[in-house]
């Protein structure tokens, strides 16, 4: 394992310290317990948006703190959800009196820790709502599992709900639009090579030179199936098929197409996947209204990609386009 790190136990602390220094115009870093807020938090009268989760998915979540997106991000240890003692002060720090929305990826650890923090925040008089992002169609959604994981869709929820909060929507309204995004977004990923968690010291799974993992998450977990290597168009088809089967987009509907790199895949390859995914959508008469291509929710240096499709309505488009000023997403006046 070769990594640009010092002490494996200090990776998150040192990395967030660097992040805070590099983006001091946008964020403040609170060291102990560790969380990151928007520079100008709390914004009076604005709904506060808090997300968080294990580290190793950068730019998620700290890279999305700023105007038009998150008010606070709470980084846990590598691939480990943060603890209530971090989430609670992050929540109270960004409460501007209009309540706080917790955007939680659906993992047992994240759910339990945010749940506890939400109870404690409520006890301190902060109104908290929670949405669970669970867009990964690789996982069967059933009463007998922990449900689907939250993956690429999380970025879209944070952006669109963040736009709604920024324009002054109420907690109920922001929660409703976040949930609407969740209801209309599906993702699926592939790994060509695993990642190595610094404290673990060895790759999260082993693949030979002609195998890939289909249906992976963002924590270096093995995927649902291991198959023989295929070309980009073939793999893209395998990811798009379950997404479209589940989302049931009709001809003429508008979508946002998001091709995400897992951390170790060149941008050129992501655009090859994007090209094919777009062809597949257009062949069905689906309109690709907005696009996002790049490393936006990663699994350290994993080689691979995920595809996310969000069925758009006009309000989502408007909120997507609204100004956002964060370290990793930046546009608009």
């Amino acid at each position: 394992m070769k990594k640009l790190i010092n002490d494996p136990k200090q990776v998150v602390t040192e990395s967030v310290e660097g992040f805070g220094a590099a983006h001091a115009d946008l964020v403040s870093v609170h060291p102990e317990p560790l969380f990151i807020t928007r520079k100008d938090a709390p914004r009076q009268g604005k709904v506060g948006l808090v997300s968080g989760g294990g580290s190793g998915h950068e730019p998620l979540h700290a890279g999305y703190v700023g105007r038009g997106m998150l008010d606070a991000a709470v980084p846990g240890a590598m691939f480990t959800s943060p603890t209530p003692d971090q989430i609670l002060p992050a929540t109270t720090a960004v409460d501007g009196g209009a309540g706080v929305l917790h955007i939680v990826k659906n993992y047992t650890g994240d759910v339990l820790n945010f749940e506890t923090a939400a109870e404690l925040a409520e006890a301190e008089g902060v109104t908290v709502r929670t949405v669970l992002v669970n867009d990964d169609v690789a996982v069967e959604d059933s009463l007998y599992t922990a449900g689907r994981r939250g993956v690429g869709g999380t970025v879209l929820v944070e952006r669109i709900a963040g736009g709604a909060a920024e324009r002054g929507d109420s907690l109920d309204a922001v929660t409703a639009i976040a949930q609407r995004v969740i209801d209309n977004v599906r993702s699926m990923g592939v790994a060509l090579a695993a990642c190595t968690v610094p404290h673990a010291g060895q790759p999260s799974f082993d693949l030979t030179d002609d195998e890939i993992e289909i249906g992976i998450g963002i924590h270096g977990e093995p995927g649902r199936h291991r198959i023989a290597m295929e070309n980009a168009d073939g793999i893209t088809g395998r990811l798009m098929e379950p997404i479209l089967a589940d989302l049931k987009v009709d001809s003429g509907e508008k979508v946002l197409l998001f091709v995400n790199g897992m951390g170790g895949t060149p941008a050129s390859e992501l655009y090859i996947v994007y090209r094919r995914a777009r062809q597949l959508l257009e062949e069905q008469g689906i309109v690709v209204e907005r696009s996002l291509v790049g490393n936006y929710i990663t699994a350290l240096e994993m080689q691979g990609a995920s595809i996310t499709v969000l069925r758009l309505d006009d309000e989502m488009v408007e909120l997507w386009d609204s100004p956002v000023h964060t370290a990793a997403l930046h546009w608009g006046v």
Partner: peptide, 8 residues
């Protein structure tokens, strides 16, 4: 201090 599922 544990985090994850095991902490809670």
């Amino acid at each position: 201090s544990v985090g994850g599922a095991a902490g809670p």
